[in-house]
Computed example of a mutant assay.
Amino acid sequence: MALTAFGKAVRKARVDIGQTLLSMAAELDTTASFLSAMETGRKKISAQWVGKIGKFFEEKGHPIADLGQLAAVSNEAVPVDGLPLQQQMLVAGFAKSSFTAEELKQIAQLLEKINKRKKE
């Protein structure tokens, strides 16, 4: 089975730090088959597992950018629970829009710019 976006990022990070699926599973107190199922999309990736996997790579000095977003894409679901109604409406409206590739690129650049300013 093909890797999801989440799976590709996790596998690359694992290889980069010299970890096998089995060694990573042992450190996370789970099975290699469970981790593999998340990488290939056979299992949904919970927020708890995003946190555990994210922490695992951070502790190894190799954080994975946008891990939560990659999990949402791989799960084919973007959680809106806990978001204000305005943000929920924006997510729903965005999901049903028909933007061109160029328009999506511009929106992504705008969001990146806004997020960068917030961190300053």
Rank of each mutant, 00 (worst) to 15 (best):
T31C: 07
K44Y: 11
S36I: 01
K43S: 15
L28A: 03
S33T: 10
K52P: 00
G18P: 10
I53L: 11
G18A: 06
M38T: 06
G54V: 01
L28P: 02
L21T: 05
V50C: 02
A26E: 15
V15M: 11
L22Y: 12
Q48C: 10
A32V: 00
G51Q: 13
R42I: 00
A47K: 13
G41H: 09
A37C: 05
S46N: 02
A47N: 08
T31F: 12
Q19Y: 12
E39R: 08
D29Q: 12
M24Q: 13
G54I: 01
W49T: 02
A47C: 01
L28M: 13
L28T: 05
F34I: 07
I45K: 01
I17H: 10
D16A: 14
A32Y: 02
I17S: 06
D29R: 10
I17E: 10
I53G: 01
K52Q: 14
A25G: 04
M38W: 09
T30V: 11
W49M: 15
L21Y: 07
K43P: 00
A25M: 06
E27S: 13
T30F: 06
A32E: 11
L35M: 09
M24Y: 01
Q48P: 00
S23T: 14
T40R: 13
M24I: 01
A32H: 07
F34E: 03
W49C: 02
L22V: 12
D29T: 08
Q19M: 09
E27C: 09
V50H: 03
